[in-house]
Design a protein around this nucleic acid. Structure first.
Lengths: 131, 131
DNA sequence: AATAGTGGTAACCCAAAAGTAACTAATGGC
DNA sequence: GCCATTAGTTACTTTTGGGTTACCACTATT
């Protein structure tokens, strides 16, 4: 009687990956931070539809999972910089592949080019997220 | 005054990808089906912790997004076979990279090897999911 | 004296996702 | 005549994720 093997050596780690980044906001956060470190308020501005509470929460979880580095400066008003860890940097090419896949698999969707411009101090990215 | 560009040409398609596969069950379903087509009951058995209602739902969504092919045979008792579309096959290497990344980034987790064995007709995979 | 600016937190609410248990249709086998 | 079998569905409950508003601490600026 023949044996049939169903082999998923990767299913469990895949589940883990999805637990870490498979939600509404985290891939975007990682993508934004791939441009370099960024302050909390900047992230909040660049993702205008996220609430502060949720952004705080996502950042905390990403930090706990070792994907983000959080640097808090003792200044007034406060300044907190978030940046990617090595782990997270290793994930970027895969995220790129995921988005490339979508562009390829759903050409009819013509995904927007999310180019966001900061001009000078604050006004420019204000302009952008107002649009 | 220097302009600073924050470029995410991929953010939107990435969001789309996450909407399609970024949840608890879908990557596992795709991974299981990468071994070939499979019946509803088999999927239900191999993912013992999913409820039938949710499995039905996930399969329906995957089918609607063009990742799964559903073949229903007019037999009694009913037989329904699910298999991957070309789109989904194109996604497999990326899923592989995601799981490889987790294995690499979290070596301390020592993810289980999810090897599931079907022996003959039914008993074997019964044995497996009972464990 | 008042206000703006920053990175949060606390209390509360809501909708969507997921889980549970019972039920169905149609047939073959006992 | 009765049960097992399969791929669901239905109705109901629970859990989760996310959203909203208000508030705080501390200082520089007006």
């Amino acid at each position: 009687m023949a044996r049939k093997y169903i082999d998923n050596p990767n299913a469990c780690s895949l589940v883990h990956t999805m637990n870490i980044i498979g939600n509404k906001w985290k891939p975007i956060i990682l993508y934004l931070l791939s441009n370099g470190s960024m302050r909390f308020g900047m992230l909040n501005t660049l993702i205008p539809t996220i609430s502060k509470k949720v952004l705080t929460n996502q950042l905390k979880e990403l930090e706990n999972d070792g994907l983000l580095l959080r640097q808090s400066f003792a200044e007034i008003p406060p300044r907190v910089e978030y940046s990617l860890t090595e782990k997270a940097v290793g994930l970027l090419p895969v995220l790129k592949m995921l988005s490339d896949w979508a562009n390829d698999a759903y050409p009819e969707m013509k995904f927007e080019q999310c180019r966001i411009i900061e001009n000078g101090k604050k006004l420019a990215y204000n302009n952008v997220y107002k649009n």
